[in-house]
């Protein structure tokens, strides 16, 4: 399988991502790691809790990878894993990797996966602040009704 997607409640492996995104004919591999940041909208963040819809999430991840494969080549390899649960500052929330014969396809496809995942995947985050408060982060609406 050239496409691997998953949601996990354990530490994400960049080594596994790069091992998957490898082939004799692939001269390029691109790796993206999304991490929990300690500051958002001027507020000090202590941790982030990720909630997600596992089944739909995996469907959307796979759909996005297939779109990228159609755009940048059938031979590309894709890896997309997202964490759920509470993560401390610095922990990886998402690992995305793409490999391809040449670097341009990897860069473009990896960026596509990142941006589409953020806009389309059913994932929500609740920030926990140093002052003790918590808040759900505003996101992108999936609906278009009037």
């Amino acid at each position: 399988m050239t496409i691997h997607v998953a949601t996990k409640d354990e530490v994400l492996s960049t080594e596994a991502a790069l091992a998957h995104c490898s082939a004799p004919g692939h001269g390029a591999a691109d790796l993206f790691i999304g991490r929990v940041r300690d500051l958002n909208q001027g507020r000090q963040v202590r941790a982030v809790s990720y909630d997600l819809h596992p089944v739909l999430c995996n469907n959307v991840f796979r759909e996005i990878c297939k779109e990228a494969r159609q755009e940048w080549g059938e031979s590309l390899h894709f890896w997309l894993e997202h964490r759920q649960g509470r993560l401390a500052v610095g922990e990886a929330s998402v690992v995305i990797a793409v490999s391809s014969p040449h670097r341009d396809e990897s860069f473009r496809a990896c960026r596509y996966l990142v941006e589409q995942m953020k806009h389309r995947a059913p994932i929500w985050k609740q920030e926990h602040y140093v002052d003790g408060d918590s808040e759900w982060v505003k996101g992108h609406a999936l609906c278009s009704h009037g």
């Binding site: 990142v114 994932i123 609406a141 999936l142 009704h145």
Partner: peptide, 21 residues
């Protein structure tokens, strides 16, 4: 979509605006 029939027997979820990553 708003005009879709709610499928019988399917698990239905409400999805607020998303923000992965």
């Amino acid at each position: 979509g708003e005009g879709d029939t709610v499928p019988a027997g399917a698990r239905i979820s409400i999805l607020p605006p998303v923000c992965g990553g």
